[in-house]
Nucleic acid binder design. Structure first.
Length: 415
RNA sequence: GCGGGUAUAGCUCAGCAGGUAGAGCGUCUGAUUGUGGUUCAGAAUGUCACGGGUUCGAGCCCCGUUACUCGCCCCA
């Protein structure tokens, strides 16, 4: 039996790998225009970082982490906690009071794989630490919008909400739980569990009975202070004037404990049921929670595979990988050695070139050259080696150019 | 953790009333002596997922296992 890849992982074969690299380069380019700098952190961290950063009761931490070495380490299931850890550990706040960072990296979660969801998957994202300006929220969403549009995705919607500060939520939750306690026996099993562990999450239940019960429940928004509401309204007004297509969704809560104020999700078509391509929000208390001097922050994360799936659905046209400039066809052992020396020169001067390594017939070598999309072919045999001259064939039209001196072949190819 | 679907050549799939396997694509070779793309000719490759059962005989029927896949939950 052949050994197979672990469940929920995948191989990126050359064609797809090329596309993936293209996407990553394009993302780097966009992030750079917004003045975000790349950050890379370890693939695994101390388990405690995620427990404290993301929240013990979240699904991610409670049942989806790849933990090893007696619970000491965990493969990172997301990046925000790591970025904040690195920010604190390296005192980045001393370099500049506002840090704008981005990342592209693989994450690991032990979930049942399905369309758009893997156990090892790639996320790219951005984090801004040090500013509570609502315009940073706006820039974040602008950036997400820009990225999707840069890939030709014009039909996405941003769902947006505010979940206020911890204090505001605390006040709300007392009333909310008070209300729910009357219906405790009618709630779904999931919601009953959340009632104690994470009551806010009950808001985005999918259970029909729960939704019915929630109809008359107190609304979080009305428990928010005026300044919180104004912050949110400012964000919305800005988005409107920027022509960004948003939709306020008061039930948008999100699953991670560290969120405060603005939360948002970009929804895209072509993803089946995993239709969130970008998700994010403010996390003004996380830095402090992880032991740092309090600093407001906001970020988003996006699924690279999901982005690629949307592109697939949209029939996005990736650029073709560049073909080779020259294929050297050879006849016999001597010419093969001659060819490899020639290749050494050509490649050194930046020419993408190739030759045969299977001792194949000229016909087969020509076929190979064609398959490799070679722009030119030159055949090296006795004659050519003796006279140091030959014919350079242009594959597109079959025309041949006389080459007086093979040694200076690159002159013809670099035009 | 729970539910559905699928499992035949590298890929996409066909196969039938149960008689030990096929197509297209791809790959490779050749169509006179050293020249591609089109065309033509030919070739290779399968323990028909695995284990058991029924049967004279199973890719096809039954049971189990595993893998993959889609959905629920949750998330990117």
């Amino acid at each position: 039996m052949l050994i197979q890849k672990p469940k929920g992982t995948y191989d990126l074969l050359p064609e797809k790998a090329f596309q993936r690299t293209f996407i990553e380069n394009k993302l780097r380019d966009i992030f750079s225009k917004y003045n975000y700098s790349e950050i890379r952190t370890p693939t695994f961290e101390k388990t405690a970082l995620f427990k404290r950063g993301i929240g013990e009761e979240t699904d991610i931490v409670s049942k989806e982490m790849y933990t090893f070495n007696e619970d000491e380490f965990t493969l990172k299931p997301e990046m925000t906690a790591s970025v904040v850890r690195s920010y604190l550990e390296n005192s980045l706040y001393n370099e500049s009071p506002v840090q704008k960072l981005f990342y592209i990296s693989n994450m690991f979660r032990r979930e049942r794989p399905q369309a758009g969801r893997f156990r090892e998957f790639s996320q790219f994202g951005a984090e801004v630490i040090g500013s509570s300006d609502y315009l940073i929220d706006v820039e974040m969403i602008m950036l997400g919008d820009h990225i999707l549009k840069a890939f030709g995705i014009n039909n996405s919607v941003v769902k947006i909400n505010t979940i206020g500060t911890l204090d505001e939520r605390q006040a709300y939750l007392i009333e909310f739980k008070n209300y729910l306690s009357k219906y405790l026996n009618d709630l779904s099993k999931d919601s009953r569990i959340r009632f104690d562990k994470n009551p806010l999450r009950i808001l985005d239940t999918k259970d029909k009975g729960d939704i019915e019960i929630l109809r008359d429940a107190p609304v979080l928004y009305s428990y928010l202070r005026d300044e919180t509401k104004i912050l949110f309204e400012n964000v919305l007004t800005s988005l409107k004037s920027l022509n960004i297509n948003y939709e306020v969704d008061y039930k948008l809560v999100r699953g991670l404990d560290y969120y405060t104020h603005t939360t948002f999700e970009f929804i895209a078509e072509g993803l089946g049921s995993q239709n969130t391509v970008i998700g994010g929000g403010r996390y003004d208390v996380l830095v402090e929670q992880l032991g740092g001097k309090p600093a407001p922050a906001i970020g988003f994360a996006a699924g690279t595979e999901r982005l690629m799936m949307v592109l697939e659905a949209n029939k996005y046209e990736y650029p073709e990988e560049e073909g080779i400039k020259l294929y050297i066809a050879t006849i016999g052992e001597d010419s093969k050695f001659y060819a490899i020396k020639l290749l050494n020169k050509l490649r050194a001067s930046g020419i993408k070139s190739e030759t045969d390594f299977l001792n194949r017939s000229i016909k087969s070598q020509m076929r190979e050259a064609n398959k490799l999309n070679a722009e030119y072919v030159i055949v090296i045999g006795e004659e050519e080696m003796k006279n140091k001259s030959g014919k350079l064939k242009r594959m597109a039209d079959g025309n041949e150019i006389e080459i007086a001196d093979i040694e200076s072949l690159s002159v013809h190819l670099l035009i």
